[in-house]
Design a protein around this nucleic acid. Structure first.
Lengths: 218, 218
DNA sequence: TCAAAAGTGTTCAGCTTACACCCATGA
DNA sequence: TCATGGGTGTAAGCTGAACACTTTTGA
């Protein structure tokens, strides 16, 4: 019996230069692909994703979650490959200098609004990951994974605006919701900002990450 | 290079006898498994799920969605198998007589609260599918897939109570929300019930199935 | 004292919840 | 006319959006 190949690909998001960026690897022929590779025969999917992420970006401790499995037989004309896709969120600050220390490939980061030509169905995969990220950010606290350990409320506010591509989040209401959610603690220390210094916050370790959404349907 | 096997398994839910039931297949040794099987080399994941569902239950047109991919190397001690799991919702009324017309296996339906011993990690898979179903029912109209084409509001109300395992949904508010959601249309015909006859409704074909949830986080 | 940014309080509209009530049918 | 279940209206309370306001810093 003929077996399909199984790959793990990873959509790695980060925030830098006021944009939501995704990690891509340059192929010879002017096309780009997501970081990823084959799964080991004795390796779990999540272990494979962790390993491949580390090989490609040099980063280990991050938010990592399974996204979807793409298995259309036409998606790769050369080899029947089923791709289990993970999505990862990392803070730009922890990226090692020169990025791809343990990789042979040239990686770089691209704004999700200005993607270069991508191989196979990788454009579709990124599109899907972005949709899911936007959903997820509204009912869980994943945005923190994109920020450093300590951050100001303005920085967090800004992260939401960039990810949702929406400049209209009200500052007062944003802060009130976070206060009510009870997921942050003051460091307490201040960060200089050019105006009044801003209190630094960190994510509470014992806080609930996912919140049960309100029912829309009965 | 050694390749893992790829299987597709399906968690099929239905409502009957006032309970949420899942479809299981009896193995020789007093254990049960989810319907599923190997993927063909030229078959998409969704096509495989559709085919395997049909082979096992005789049912074709249903709600079918990818759930999660389970790939722990220890999940099957005999063979490294990665399982792409789908979940399906079907209406009990469309099940053919004797159920498994095109299958060699003995299938039967079990309440999700009284499951028999299951093979591999299938108990875990069902648990996960149930959690996702409960989430999903609150922000999308999937409950209709468990009911016949025409149904009364009481039947729909009852379906929600069974799935959520919650008897406290207010009748008036349930109906009001559905009216506001604008996803139903009166048939218009009545169903005899023992008291005042109930209006039959059907799902509007042009209605929005998934509703953007309200933001919890800012 | 002015600009810049942090941070707060208050109002109003709209939604959710709880509950009481009326309607249509068969026995 | 009573039991059964279908179906609706409304008041109280909570939530979220909008917006105006105060505070603290550096220049």
């Amino acid at each position: 019996m003929q077996l399909p190949h199984v790959a793990v690909d990873i959509v790695v998001f980060t925030l830098c230069d006021q944009a939501l960026k995704v990690c891509l690897i340059n192929l010879d022929n002017d096309r780009w692909r997501l970081p990823g590779g084959s799964i080991g025969i004795d390796e779990s999917l999540e272990d494979a994703a962790t390993r491949l992420l580390e090989e490609n970006t040099g980063v280990s401790a991050v938010f990592l979650q399974q996204l979807y499995t793409f298995g259309n037989p036409q998606r790769d004309p050369t080899l029947r490959t089923i791709s289990v896709v993970y999505f990862a969120l990392i803070c730009a600050e922890i990226l090692p200098h020169g990025y791809a220390t343990n990789s042979n490939y040239a990686i770089s980061w691209h704004s999700v609004y200005q993607l270069p030509p991508l191989t196979l169905d990788h454009a579709e995969i990124i599109e899907y990951a972005l949709t899911r990220l936007r959903y997820k950010i509204e009912y869980s606290a994943v945005a923190f994974a994109l920020l450093p350990d300590e951050f100001t409320l303005r920085e967090l506010h800004h992260a939401y605006e960039i990810i949702l591509n929406d400049q209209r989040l009200d500052k007062a209401n944003f802060r009130k919701k976070l206060r009510d959610a009870d997921i942050l603690e003051a460091v307490p220390r201040y960060k200089e900002t050019g105006g009044r210094p801003a209190m630094l916050y960190r994510f509470r370790k014992d806080a609930q990450l996912e919140i049960k959404t309100k029912r829309f349907f009965p």
